[in-house]
Amino acid sequence: MVSLILILVASLFFTGIVIRTKSLASGRKGPGIFQPMKDIFRLLKKGSVYSSTTSIIFQIAPSFYIASVLMAILIVPLGDYPGVISFQGDFILFAYLLAFGKFFMIISALDTGSSFEGMGASRESLFSMLVEPAFFILMGSFALLTGHTSFHDIFATLHYGSNISYLLGLLATFVFIMIAMIENSRMPVDDPKTHLELTMIHEVMVLDNSGFDLGLILHTTNLKFAMYGAIISNFFIGDLSLIYTIPIFFAVQIGFAIVAGLLESFMARFRMSHNPQFIFILTSVSLLIFFGVLLLLERFV
């Protein structure tokens, strides 16, 4: 329950910090950190324009999308405090819920009958397929390390004993930041601020969404960022009490947002054809983590 509230709060300012960091890095003053939320509220109040080729799928997909992410957020714990939903293997449900939302976004993009949106959908489906193994192997490594199979049990019993385990935590953080960047279609893989449809992924999928639906989609992105931030913060929390947990949580969220902003400021987007290779690197890094865990537990033969 704690994590749910905290994530909802963090989602309000997360993108704002990212945008602010980017403006500062490029020497501008930039908008206030709540400006993205104001934009979303403005969108939520607007009417909509629907394409004549679209069907009911296009109208319901954004709602399905946000519902799936909200449901996934319910699973995320905060240190010793389990999420609203917690059971053995809950991270499998987590991953599949996100996939459910993505399924609907992809088919809604194809519903418009536009070639741009088809292109975005094609890339999104391929890239999200390539990301999945990294997440599952990472969770597999932690299941191996702790002997538990639920988010809460894993994070609550995660202790950093030796030097290797610190390294593992660091690598895992890296992998999760990258997963978050890819899942939210941010910089090294996708540039949200590009003006050319041919080079977009997520943005081009929602070209035809407007009004309330667009607001939902934009806020879902915020929620997803905050959700991944919360998972990353779990690597550092362990079983501390709430007094320490909450500041750490926000520190991690803000740090993550700044990192995301800096990445976007100082990195160029990869060539689209090189993206799969980059995403495969994440899988190999998580394999590295897996073997690191094996080394730690002295399970190698």
């Binding site: 394409s51 004549s52 080729t53 009958g113 741009f116 949106e117 088809g118 292109m119 094609s122």
Partner: peptide, 30 residues
Amino acid sequence: RLVSVASTWGCGYNGSSNKMQYTASSFIRS
């Protein structure tokens, strides 16, 4: 709310849309 219907965003050219759509082959090209 006000709801209006328009054609799909065509980046300046709204030609015969069924031929310009993404096909199954193009969807799986990458």
